[in-house]
Design a protein around this nucleic acid. Sequence first.
DNA 1: GAAGGCAGTGAATCTGAAC
DNA 2: TGTTCAGATTCACTGCCTT
Lengths: 381, 381
Amino acid sequence: MGELTKLRAAPAAKAKRAAPVRKEDLPLGKILAGDCVSAMRKLPDASVDLVFADPPYNLQLGGDLNRPDGSHVDAVTDDWDHFDSFALYDKFTRDWLIEARRVLKPDGALWVIGSYHNIYRVGAILQDLGFWILNDIVWRKTNPMPNFRGTRFTNAHETLLWCSQGEKAKYHFNYRAMKTLNDELQMRSDWVLPICSGGERLKDDTGHKAHPTQKPESLLYRVLLATTEAGDVVLDPFFGTGTTGAVAKRLGRDWIGCERESAYREVATKRIAKELPLDESALKTMQSRKNQPRVAFGAVVESGFLKPGTQVFDKKRRWIAKVRADGSIECGKVTGSIHGVGKDLQGAPSCNGWTFWHYEVDGDVKPVDAARQLYLLAVED
Amino acid sequence: MGELTKLRAAPAAKAKRAAPVRKEDLPLGKILAGDCVSAMRKLPDASVDLVFADPPYNLQLGGDLNRPDGSHVDAVTDDWDHFDSFALYDKFTRDWLIEARRVLKPDGALWVIGSYHNIYRVGAILQDLGFWILNDIVWRKTNPMPNFRGTRFTNAHETLLWCSQGEKAKYHFNYRAMKTLNDELQMRSDWVLPICSGGERLKDDTGHKAHPTQKPESLLYRVLLATTEAGDVVLDPFFGTGTTGAVAKRLGRDWIGCERESAYREVATKRIAKELPLDESALKTMQSRKNQPRVAFGAVVESGFLKPGTQVFDKKRRWIAKVRADGSIECGKVTGSIHGVGKDLQGAPSCNGWTFWHYEVDGDVKPVDAARQLYLLAVED
DNA sequence: GAAGGCAGTGAATCTGAAC
DNA sequence: TGTTCAGATTCACTGCCTT
C-alpha cells in the first residue's frame, strides 16, 4: 500500500463547485463501448448518484475440474478475467476506481462485488483512495456450487462493499424501506439470495449461458432500493448483460453502462428493452420470507449444549453410543451422524436421530432434540 | 500495495531444512508477555502448525492504535490524517504477519479474524507476503448488536481468512469431520454462530466484561477441529482472555499465546486451568477415506472376498465384466484395472472403480467397495 | 394430470503417492 | 524435477421425460 498512501486521497469531486450537471447532458440508458476507464472519462465530474461495479475477479484456476459424476465444470476462463500478477490487477483496480470517484457526486456511493480472490485488494485500494466503507455485505448463496474435491469449505458467498466518498461525506440509505423489506427487522449485512439460474439466466443462440457470471436481479434490486431514489443516475462500469440496467429501469432509476464486449452489449440492449417498470404492489411481494434455520447436531455439540463424551441411547437402551467432538457418534464399530448410526443399528431405511437418541440431564432422560431446542433458544435472542 | 508487491513472498520457512523443532523446546501452554512480534521472535522457525490471530480492529474508532513495540499512537481521527493511520496499521500488520509466517511450518496455516475496518488491509498484505487464501469465512452472528441510529445495515458478521503458506503449499483440512459436523452436508464458508455472551463471557471483579472482544468458543472449536489434529501446536499472537488456549486444551491441541496486558494474561491463565481435556475417544473424528490405507483390488481378490470369475457390472448393467485372478477385469476387448476399464468404457476423464462396479451377493447388488470394507475389517484385527 | 427419475449446471484459486 | 495413475469427490434447483 506504500505508494498509494503517499498519494493521499484525491479530494474527489468535492472541489468542483461548477454548475450541477444536467441529466440531459448524460448518456442515460446508453451502453458505452470500450474499456470502462476510457468510457467514464467521457462523463462529467460529479454527475452520477451511484456506481455499481462487478469487476473481473482475477480467478486463478488450475487445470480442468470435473464433478464426481465425471461431467465437466464450465469455468470462467475468459481473457477478461486474467491478470498476470497482483500488481497488474491492482493497477487496473486503481484506474477504474479513480474514474468512478471523479464521476460520482459528493454524496454518491460506490458498490463493488467480489470474491476472496480480489475483494481484499479492491477494499484496500478504495480505502487508500479515500472511499469510506459503510458496510461490507455478504451475499450468502442458497445454492452455491459444491467443492467437488473435498479440499476446502464450500465457497458459498460473495462480498459487496458499500462506500461513501469519504468519512464525512453524505450518502443515502433507505432505512425504512429495508426494514419493511425484512419483516420489520433491521436489514442485516448478510443477504440470503439464490444464484441466477432458470428462466432469469440469459442464453445465447446455442442455448449456452450468455455470460459466465450473470448476477441475480434480486441482488441489484436490494442494492438500488437501499441506496438510491427514483430518478437517480446509476453507472455500471462492467455492464455485462445489463442486470443493473434492467433492475434500474424496473425501479425507475436512470442508468449508464460501460461494456467492452459487443456481444454482451447486444444481449443487454435487447434485455433492457423488454423490461417494464414494476408497480409498487409487485415490489412488495418480491421478497421471500426468512427461512427457518436447519440445526446441525454438530452445532449443538460445538456450542456446548451436549458435550462430547456424553452417552446417548435409544429409549429402550438397546444401544448406547458416545458423542464425539465433531458431532458424530460412536456405538461399537458403527460411527457416523445421529441419523445414520440410528438407521444402521436398527437396520431401518431411515431414522430421525433427534428423537431416537436420548441423554440424561439431572436424572431425567430427554431426547437429544431437547438440546437442539436449548440451542435454538440461545441463538434466537 | 506497490512496494509490497515487489517484495513478493519471502520463501517462508520452506528454505529451512534444519532438524525439525522438538515440541519440548517450545513454551507450550505458556502465555508470552510483551508485544507479539518480540514474543514470536523467541520461537524457532517452522515450529507451529497453526496461527490463529484476532488482531486489534481499531482503525477508525478513535485512535486506540499501538505500535508493535507497545507504544501508543496518538489519536489521529481527523480525516486529513486518516491515511497516516492506515499506513501505521499496515506496518503493524505486516510486522506480525512476517513473524507468524516464519514461525509456521511449511504445511502450517494461518487464520485471521477481522471486520470491514481492517480485514481488507490484512487480506491484501497477507497475499503480498505470499500467503494463499484458501477460504474467506463469514461468521454470521445470530445475535448481533443492532444499528441504533438506523444509518446503515446491521453489522451482523465478521470475516475470517484461512491461508496456507503459499499457492503450492500443503495444508490440513478435516473434510469428513466438517461434513459430519454439518449433518452430512459440506461445511460452507458461512458459519452461523451466536456471539459470546451469558456464562461464557468472562467478567472481572467488578462484574464488567473482562475483554471487549471475547470470541465465542464455538468459533475456535470449529477452526481447530477443521484445520488441526490432536497434538498440533497452535499459536495465538493476540491471546486476550485465552479462548484459543481454552478450546485447544479441550481438544487436545497444544498452544502458545502472546499477550501484552497482564490483566488479560491472568484471566486467561485461570480460565485455562479450569478447562479439562476431552478423553481420547471423544476426540476421534470421522476420517476421510483419503486417509484410509490404500487397498489394491488384487488384494481383495487374492484374499477371497471377491472370487476370480465373478461378474461385475455398473449400476445400470450397461457393461458386464469378469474378474480375473490377478485383480484385472475383462469386458469384451477392454481389460485392465477396475478404474481404467470403467473410465475407458464410459469415455470419462476418470472413474472410481470401487463405486462404479457392482456384484451380486445372496441376491443383493453391492458395489465392490463392500468387498474392500470386508477386507479392511479382516485385516484390522 | 401427477409423481418420480434422470440429466444438467453454477465466479472454483479443487489430489497426491509412487516411480 | 516430471509423469503416471489410483481413486476420492457434490448441493440445490431446473427442466425434460417416463410411468
